[in-house]
């Protein structure tokens, strides 16, 4: 049996308006289909080939380059308001192969396969000699820093006991003098005071806190500063902001975000 004739193809320019619309539809699809880590934004369209689809429509087969932003995927901030992670912050890029169907001027993603990879330490060193580098999320210093920061946050918070949901990012300063971590917490139905066994605390659905913390080692001990932004309708009592915390999360920019 004769193989079906390949459908006619066309090779548009990567910056043609319809190609860019297809790429943006793919970015929106990627961001709404992963539950961990950060939102990604379009950086460059590498390749595109358009196939005729029977009985109607066209399929855009593309390779696109993305860059990680500083917004967690659970953060309701619109993507256009999310800052791209800069080279000196140890940027992370995403490479995606996507197929997008264009039918009746609508773009629907048929499939997407993506890989993310951090910039190399050498490249970060080229732009910043003493910047903190990404660390494995299961590094013992990272785990300790998150534990200490969450304990400090719960100690300040007065409404709800928060549990750890995800460690999203960690960086170690040169000589490991300080650890910078970002993690996601979830409020529970326990009050911070009466938590004998956290296992009995139930998570409050659809409410999250995104926290940034820095743990600094010093002679005879360590300092930890944490600040969290709670998304959703969690009851919030604005705790005293620890001074000296790392880049604190900005003021409320979207409904339901409360810096604590």
């Amino acid at each position: 049996a004769r193989s079906p004739l390949p459908s006619p193809v066309r090779d548009p320019n990567c910056d043609d308006p319809d190609v860019e619309q297809a790429a943006l539809a793919a970015v929106q699809y990627v961001n709404s289909n992963h539950r961990h880590g950060y939102k990604y934004t379009l950086n460059q369209i590498d390749k595109v080939r358009v196939y005729q689809r029977r009985p109607a429509g066209e399929v855009y087969s593309m390779e696109i380059d993305l860059l990680e932003t500083t917004c967690h995927v659970l953060d309701p901030t619109p993507l256009e308001n999310c800052t791209v992670r800069q080279l000196i912050e140890h940027a992370v890029e995403g490479d995606c192969d996507v197929s997008v169907l264009k039918l009746d001027n609508q773009f629907v993603v048929l499939n997407a396969k993506c890989e993310s990879s951090p910039d190399s330490a050498e490249d970060v060193r080229k732009v910043c000699l003493d910047c903190a580098l990404l660390a494995p999320l299961n590094d013992t210093k990272v785990l300790h820093a998150v534990d200490a920061a969450l304990a400090a946050f719960n100690a300040q918070n007065h409404t709800s006991y928060f549990k750890l949901l995800e460690i999203s990012r960690a960086q170690l300063a040169p000589l490991h003098s300080s650890v910078y971590v970002e993690f996601v917490v979830v409020p529970t139905d326990c009050s911070p005071k009466d938590v004998a066994d956290p296992a009995v605390c139930n998570l409050l659905a659809d409410q999250y806190g995104f926290c940034k913390a820095t743990l600094t080692e010093k002679v005879g001990g360590e300092d930890v500063a944490a600040s969290c932004t709670v998304f959703g309708t969690a009851p919030v009592v604005p705790g005293p902001q620890p001074d000296g915390v790392g880049p604190t999360v900005g003021p409320t920019v979207a409904a339901g975000r409360h810096p604590v």
């Binding site: 090779d11 548009p12 320019n13 990567c14 910056d15 190609v19 860019e20 934004t41 379009l42 950086n43 460059q44 369209i45 590498d46 390749k47 595109v48 380059d65 860059l67 791209v84 080279l87 940027a91 890029e93 910039d119 490249d123």
Partner: peptide, 25 residues
Amino acid sequence: PVIPGPGPAAPAIPLCPGRLRHFKI
């Protein structure tokens, strides 16, 4: 004498990769 016209236009080479919106890693 017939002067030959310009040959068939070379196929337009698609401009890819496209523009860089931020920076290259």
